[in-house]
């Protein structure tokens, strides 16, 4: 579903991704972990064109992502959930979810609202349909953001540290929604520091450090028997 071939990315003289090769089959739940500044976020931002790879190729469903077609490809395949939620504050919850459906997928307003209602129910926030984002808690906002991503009914959803800016008591409600999602046939790429979630949901874990993929594997192997010293060092810090 997603292929990254020899992807390098630099910001000016600062190279942040080194020769990344990654193949993510349809329906896989991939969790990317690693220390801050390891390039995890840049990596998934390369998948949906928010960052353009300096060299190398990114394929979505077999089609190469280029500057020309990335908007179209992303619209077709990909949704994203951000660390800062990035809900549109001037629109209601319903408006946030339906805007892409009506304007990009050309659904009728009624149709779009039906879809939205379905996913609002899924994230347990049906009663907030007419609220505006600033009136909601962080956890609620992130659940709305997930509903917004789901409502586009894409095969791929990218999660960029979805719980990192939440107060601790709100982390679980968001993770619960994501765990619920993992039973669906959606390709999920999740950058996170939540190791419990990774163990429970991931089909595969990728560990990154300093712009390189250091190690990858099934969660059981990865957590119980990490091969690389750097992985072990990282896990020992984070699983204290």
């Amino acid at each position: 579903m997603i292929q990254l071939v020899n992807v390098n990315k630099s910001f000016g003289n600062n190279q942040v991704l080194f020769n990344i090769n990654l193949d993510i089959p349809e329906g896989e739940k991939l969790v990317i972990i690693g220390p801050s500044g390891s390039g995890k976020s840049t990596l998934i931002r390369c998948i949906n064109g928010l960052e353009e790879a300096t060299s190398g190729q990114v394929f979505l469903d077999g089609e190469e992502l280029t500057r020309k077609n990335h908007t179209k490809l992303v619209r077709k395949h990909c949704a994203m959930v951000f660390q800062q939620f990035n809900l549109y504050p001037h629109l209601s919850v319903m408006g946030n979810i339906t805007i892409a459906l009506t304007l990009l997928q050309k659904k009728s307003k009624k149709e779009a609202e039906q879809v939205a209602a379905h996913y609002l129910e899924l994230v347990g926030l049906t009663e907030k349909a007419n609220a505006h984002p600033p009136q909601l808690s962080g956890g609620q906002q992130q659940r709305i953001a997930i509903a917004r991503a789901l409502a586009t009914q894409q095969k791929i959803i990218l999660f960029d540290e979805p719980t990192s800016s939440l107060d601790p008591e709100m982390v679980q409600e968001v993770l619960d929604v994501m765990i619920k999602l993992s039973s669906e046939n959606i390709t999920m790429v999740v950058v996170t520091h939540e190791m419990g979630f990774a163990k429970q949901v991931a089909d595969r874990i990728v560990f990154m450090d300093e712009g390189c993929i250091i190690e990858e594997g099934h969660p059981t192997d990865f957590f119980e028997n990490p091969k690389s010293v750097r992985t072990r060092l990282f896990l020992s810090k984070i699983l204290r």
């Binding site: 992303v74 619209r75 990909c78 949704a79 990035n86 549109y88 805007i99 892409a100």
Partner: peptide
Amino acid sequence: IPVGQLEAAKSQGFQ
């Protein structure tokens, strides 16, 4: 306007 707003829109496939 925070840059995240534009990124959110682009990630949905808006030009």
